[in-house]
Amino acid sequence: MIRITDEILNKYLDGDLSREEAEQVKSGLRASEELMKQYNALKLVHQKLFVMKEDEVSPGFTDTLMMQIVKRKFAIPKQQKYFIFSIATFITLLCLVILGLSISAIISSAPSSIGDSKSVLVSVTNLSDGLVKTLKHTFSGKGLSIIGSIFSFLIIISGYFFFEMQKRAKTSLGNGQQL
């Protein structure tokens, strides 16, 4: 005869006992009113738990969440944003420096008698000629090779960092959840 403990009653309720053990519990329950009371209470709690109501999230939960998902999907990652911004700033600054240098070269090579010249058109033509000449000089022969090399070097460096960044982002996405 098994001793009918709380554990045995729970197992009986769950149908985890062998047929023989279940029979013993059944007769034990018949013999003891107190035990029967304990079992009935346990059974009632068990039944009531099955019809327990679920709690509800606030209205609009799904919509808010879906909006967040869409927003995150199309958002440029912060790192990428900084990268693009720094490259764009560098190129802009480089262009401004080139432009500034060209203008200063034109001004210095322009005739001092601009104010005395006969027509504004002539001075503008001179200026534009100077600009073209300076640009030609800068972007031809040795100058072009130097600028080309600098740009190629920058592109290679940027490409490397960009590739590394993408690789890191992919790895963190892959390992982020060990689930």
Partner: peptide
């Protein structure tokens, strides 16, 4: 898991038996 489930159930049962509600249901 079973031990924890049974303990929780026993607690609920014991508190239920102590309450006035048990007179109505048991």
């Amino acid at each position: 898991v079973k031990v924890m489930l049974h303990r929780s159930r026993n607690t609920l049962r014991d508190l239920f038996l102590k309450s006035k509600l048990s007179e109505e249901f048991i």
